[in-house]
Design a protein around this nucleic acid. Sequence first.
DNA 1: TAGTGGTCTAGACCACAGA
DNA 2: CTGTGGTCTAGACCACTAG
Lengths: 251, 251
Amino acid sequence: MPSAISLLGVPRGEDDRPQYLALRDQIASAIDLGKLSPGARLPSERQLQTDTGTARGTIREALFQLEAEGLIYRRDRSGWYVSPPPVTYDPTRWAGFMTYVVEQQRVPATETLSIESVAAPSAVADIFRRAPGTPMHCVTRRRSIDGRAVLIERIMVDPVLAPGLAEHDLNGSLTQILSTHYGLQAVRNRVDMRPCALTTSVAEMLGVKPGTPGLLVVRTSFAENGAVVEYDHEYWRHDAIRVHVDLQVRP
Amino acid sequence: MPSAISLLGVPRGEDDRPQYLALRDQIASAIDLGKLSPGARLPSERQLQTDTGTARGTIREALFQLEAEGLIYRRDRSGWYVSPPPVTYDPTRWAGFMTYVVEQQRVPATETLSIESVAAPSAVADIFRRAPGTPMHCVTRRRSIDGRAVLIERIMVDPVLAPGLAEHDLNGSLTQILSTHYGLQAVRNRVDMRPCALTTSVAEMLGVKPGTPGLLVVRTSFAENGAVVEYDHEYWRHDAIRVHVDLQVRP
DNA sequence: TAGTGGTCTAGACCACAGA
DNA sequence: CTGTGGTCTAGACCACTAG
């Protein structure tokens, strides 16, 4: 029973820590101590409400905090769950998603949501060095780890380089297909990353609330002749990924 | 006037978009259109309340959303402001903070907050390959861009390799000092990145609310003989940084 | 259908920034 | 000092998940 000295306004214990942070600490330490394992479900907000005697809004603030830290996540209208550990992504390695997830003893899965031909917006056209409006393959896929959807990717491929791409099974490694069937080999990779919030369309596909924190990874692969092989936007749940780069000075 | 069809619960316009997202869109487009420039201050929450006729909680939800997207930020108890553009950080380049910020036509600044000797916790000791409890230099610095604090860094350096480090002016490039005065040259860099939430202590130093979204960058620099030259944690405001990596396949 | 999170209201007081 | 954001309360109804 945390000192109920007064009953209005913001009384607060002697410690000066807001209630929602205090609750955050309680839950965080429960996770640290293993009382709540990855994947475990937290008590419902209303349960916490009666347990702690604080308003639901305050409860939710603590939960949002933990979500921002990547410790918990929510399944829409189902509940709050403890986040599994993140996978490590290394842009200097050429291994694709399926490969590095398996290497980390996790189970990857890919689902192709759509494959369509779209007119290249000018930003995309620039990258492919083609005229705006040129048709492009646009593949949308959802990828999961241990059954939990962790990213949505939208890949643009030039149909001139990969005609009939749609005929292939795209639920595996796209890089593999481009290499095997079209002789397209990347020799250079450009990667951009930045924290973002997941916008409505992506959020829906991941089954999360719009505005959930995320990480945007933009990959551009170039062939030997400088042609763009793949132009890829990956929208990750922020708690699912960690980036690792190891670099040597070349003498 | 967005259709006041009913007066209780959540009526919502025909579009099915929650009010807080609608407000988010309004503000976001005002920023896009340049009606609000980087650094500009938004109307106060209570002003928006009377302007839009919605409850303050709803207003704040929209603002949090925009903050998570990196479009706006807050100065504690002062107001909400439009975020300046992020700087690009390239871990494959050896240029330090001062250098790459200037290259991007921005004004960098460094402030040393503390320099002390601490006993290495076991995790740190492992990295330096020394016994736990071995004394280490620990430098805490705050770095700013155009006058806005964007990151806190905590650097650990082995005092055996850099005796008397505290005597130097640490408000410039530490890498430079280690190289010039101690002959410590990094030949390998290991970088880890992950989205996080800024914890209380860091948040205070940055003057932001605890839980504000951030990006943690951990750098480990190795000398030719494998010794660890610098072990550095950088806590960035998430809206201030973008990471860029460009990689070639070596034939 | 019961229970969950999602959205929203309309208040209140507190701590601090800034003039 | 005034005004700002920060924290908190105690309700309400909605939209969805899951049994």
